[in-house]
């Protein structure tokens, strides 16, 4: 333990922060959707995968580069989400919320199954954009530019989302809708529209994460389901009471995972689930949870 290899340690911390950025983006999307609809979108992972694939296909067949994809893909994925909400989830909105969970699970199976069928289960690679190639040698580590970009861009998007929800008028509507949708409707605000757009936005975050992930992870049909279950554990750890909590827990758990990879690699796939167990024992509502 005492001869710590700083180079390797910081390397794993960086990997942890990058994974954490994706955890944060995905759990943020889940938290936003949960706030208004009270459902967990099981298809969030599949839509993240969809985002990565759209970016890959757009580059390959239409020559749409990474920077354009960063804008176009979230819009496309958001539209898919809007259609899902409008035509599939809304009809059963008044049933037990477990049914909506199962519905999104079915959709996730369909999306993942379709891509496995079309592209096989081996990964495809997406080149790092020219502008972000290379890296910098810092005193204690080598920092590739693209990896730095992931962390900066994700934190910026997360912070922007947090700011929009907590500090702007649109966010106030959203929060009011979370508290009391009936009353808000009585004030003449189009709640169903807000719900649809919120769902679209939460899902678009997954699409954005997918584009960001394409150059660092291989683009494969099961990339979404693997990460999603970890994100579920993170959501349980953080609780879905606050937007900020979702972001912080996501980043924090990424770092915990990175540190575990350095100190005890065998446990790196399980550590987040173990943290969940401990949190459930000590603070069942989650670190930032509001319910009793």
């Amino acid at each position: 333990m005492f001869d710590i290899n700083l180079f390797a340690l910081f390397g794993q911390l960086l990997v942890g922060l990058i994974n954490g950025s994706f955890y944060a983006l995905l759990s943020l999307g889940l938290a936003i959707i949960f706030g208004l609809l009270k459902i967990i979108n099981f298809a969030q992972g599949a839509l993240y995968m969809l985002g990565a694939f759209i970016a890959f296909l757009a580059l390959k067949y239409m020559g749409i580069n990474y920077w354009a994809a960063l804008i176009i893909v979230p819009v496309c994925v958001g539209l898919v989400g809007i259609l899902m909400e409008r035509f599939l989830i809304r009809p059963i909105a008044n049933e037990d919320h477990l049914y909506s969970l199962l519905l999104t699970f079915g959709l996730a199976l369909i999306i993942q199954g379709a891509f496995t069928h079309m592209f096989g289960s081996s990964g495809l690679s997406y080149a790092i954009p020219e502008e972000l190639k290379g890296g910098n040698r810092l005193p204690f580590m080598y920092l590739p530019n693209y990896r730095a970009w992931i962390i900066i861009a994700s934190v910026a998007v997360c912070f922007g989302t947090w700011y929009m929800i907590e500090k702007t008028k649109l966010g106030a509507y959203l929060r009011a809708g979370t508290e009391n949708p009936q009353l808000m409707q009585a004030f003449g605000i189009n709640v169903p529209l807000i719900v649809t757009l919120t769902f679209g936005f939460g899902v678009a975050l997954a699409g954005f994460a997918g584009v960001m992930a394409a150059p660092v992870y291989s683009v494969s049909p099961d990339m979404g389901s693997n990460i999603l279950i970890v994100v579920f554990a993170i959501v349980v750890i953080g609780g879905m009471g606050s937007i900020g909590g979702a972001i912080l827990t996501g980043l924090g758990m990424g770092v915990v995972e990175g540190l575990t990879k350095y100190f005890y690699p065998e446990a790196s796939t399980t550590v987040i689930f173990l943290v969940m167990v401990i949190v459930l024992l000590l603070k069942p509502a989650g670190l930032f949870g509001k319910e009793a």
């Binding site: 919320h97 477990l98 969970l101 970890v230 349980v236 167990v277 459930l280 069942p284």
Partner: peptide, 25 residues
């Protein structure tokens, strides 16, 4: 013991995560 501490959708997520832990083991 762990899962009944949470309800509804959280119950589903907790059991899923625990099962994934078992899968990795």
């Amino acid at each position: 013991k762990l899962a009944v501490k949470r309800e509804g959708i959280y119950f589903a997520m907790v059991t899923l995560a625990l099962a994934q832990l078992v899968f990795f083991i």
